[in-house]
Amino acid sequence: MKHDILIAGVGGQGILTIATILGRAAVREGLHLKQCEVHGMAQRGGAVYSHMRLSSGAIWSDMIPCGGADMLIAMEPMEALRYAAWLAPEGWLIANEEPVVNIPDYPEPERVHAEIRARPRHVLFNATELATKAGASRAANVALLGAASYFMQMPAAAFEQAIADQFASKGDKVVGANLAVFKAARELAESRAAK
């Protein structure tokens, strides 16, 4: 069993939280992992990414080879396209619709969405909105993780336990809201994948 997952977004969007929860779930399942991330300059509102490799066997490179990712999780639609070359032809692209417009030449969001929809396997949804409706407006990252989890060979319970551990220090209410976001997004992915 192996999952090579690239997570992308804009500095400050919380992509490292996605990586950390995935890592907790994987360790719980007894998998090996290597996960590299971006620290430093780019974290100031620039393009950031994390490579997450999970496997029951040995993992060599910390970086996923180009064209080798089973999944690309993007907190931001233009960032999804920046790393599209990493995705394997049969890989899934899970992306947030909501753009982060912090540059003067940001394209029309519709054009960005159209590029994503042109990919054979994608789940494009407004993770920010879904998270807000489910009661945790800052949990867009957990929403994306929820959608992504549907395509992974790991039980939902492993993710749920990892989410509970991740937010335990913030109290039961925060844990409950994040679990609700996770579940709603996972169901959304299930219904989209069935189409």
């Binding site: 500095g11 100031r44 970086m63 180009c66 233009m78 396209l81 920046r82 599209a84 070359a85 540059i103």
Partner: peptide, 29 residues
């Protein structure tokens, strides 16, 4: 990168990293 090494070993063509036209640079700020 693993791709550089694969290319040097003759196992793979260098990856085409051309970005879609809608993708703009996002420098830190």
């Amino acid at each position: 990168t693993p791709d550089d090494v694969a290319t040097a070993l003759g196992l793979k063509e260098p990856p085409a990293l051309k970005l879609a036209e809608v993708v703009k640079a996002r420098p830190p700020q």
